[in-house]
């Protein structure tokens, strides 16, 4: 009970102090700081640093959220049993790149795809919804 009363009194005090601050002009605030002998350039630099770091931290948090979102997605890897035979996979993959103009593919340091590469490419295309395994006979 006492604690609740103290909290409400503190809140009222804080509100009054904020009202007082908002009612004070910039010139008055500046004069008060000068009267107290504060280094205004140092204060301004510190405020700038704190604000910039807060803004940067908020931007970085976006990366954290994006990573969490991606990691929370269900695994989309096709079970081995669901894959068609290798030659069929190669045909399906080649056909889908001919038919779907939204699809793109790039390689770095590439020479030739191995069968395992074809399999993982097929898995990716299934995961992205470009290939629907049910549409193909196994």
């Amino acid at each position: 009970m006492n604690s609740s009363k103290t909290r409400s009194e503190l809140a009222a005090l804080r509100e009054a102090a904020l009202d007082d601050l908002m009612a004070t002009t910039d010139e008055q605030l500046l004069q008060e700081a000068i009267d107290e002998g504060k280094d205004l350039d140092a204060v301004a630099a510190l405020v700038g640093t704190v604000m910039q770091e807060s803004a940067a931290a908020a931007l970085r948090h976006r990366m954290v959220l994006a990573k969490e979102r991606m990691q929370s997605r269900p695994s989309t890897r096709s079970p081995l049993a669901a894959r068609p035979p290798m030659e069929k996979i190669k045909q399906i993959v080649q056909d889908i790149f001919q038919a779907d103009r939204d699809l793109g593919l790039a390689f770095r340091g590439g020479k030739k795809q191995t069968d395992d590469d074809w399999l993982s490419l097929y898995d990716d295309l299934v995961a992205m919804g470009a290939i629907k395994p049910d549409d193909h006979d196994h």
Binding site: M63, V64, M70, L103, A106, G109, G110, Q113, S120
Partner: peptide, 29 residues
């Protein structure tokens, strides 16, 4: 954090054995 930047731009990153190249990008929309 390049993985996170990729994720925020709609790209999932998978580290897996690749026999024929160093890296591969598959894009759709």
């Amino acid at each position: 954090d390049l993985d996170a930047i990729a994720n925020d731009n709609g790209a999932e990153v998978k580290y897996r054995p690749l026999g024929g190249c160093e890296a591969r990008l598959v894009a759709r929309g």
